[in-house]
Amino acid sequence: MWIYEKKLQYPVRVSKCDPRMARFLIEQYGGADGELSAALRYLNQRYSLPDKVIGLLTDIGTEEFAHLEMIATMVYKLTKDATPEQLEEAGLGPHYVNHDRALFYENAAGVPWTASYIQAKGDPIADLYEDIAAEEKARATYQWLIDMTDDVDLQDSLKFLREREIVHSLRFKEAVEILKEEQGKKKFF
């Protein structure tokens, strides 16, 4: 089971109301390589993976929910004081008429999240390679997001998230090596 903790993993501060940036950040909320996809991908794959790597997928999947909450906090803080006119100027007019300022699992272009973003192949190497690719794609997205803002407070939180993708990718690569080593040990009689 999971227990909620009433704190963020890392502080999220923003220095201005910026619905334009909020719209871009939604990519990491409900986009293909976003935090929701990541959390659901790992926590679903783990049921059919070898025991040696279940702990890692459980822990990284759980950390992804903490990142999802950080992204939600950024979007919330960047839009809470925006007028409908400011939201429309930022390209969030269609979002406003459907959701007001509520968050929604969609990408930066407004496309709703879909399970077809994530795969579970039942083949440990195939699944872990997908996970490594997902972390690298998320890392790249965070870089593009950092490039899109001059808000140093926001950049600080985004740099933390970019760094976490690098660590997760490294751990998944180690998991692949652990499974390969295990495979090499198998004895057939």
């Binding site: 990284i60 950390e63 997760h168 998991a175 652990i178």
Partner: peptide
């Protein structure tokens, strides 16, 4: 969290 993920593979 860093030590947890590290220990999962070490």
């Amino acid at each position: 969290v860093e030590l947890t993920l590290y220990l999962d593979t070490h």
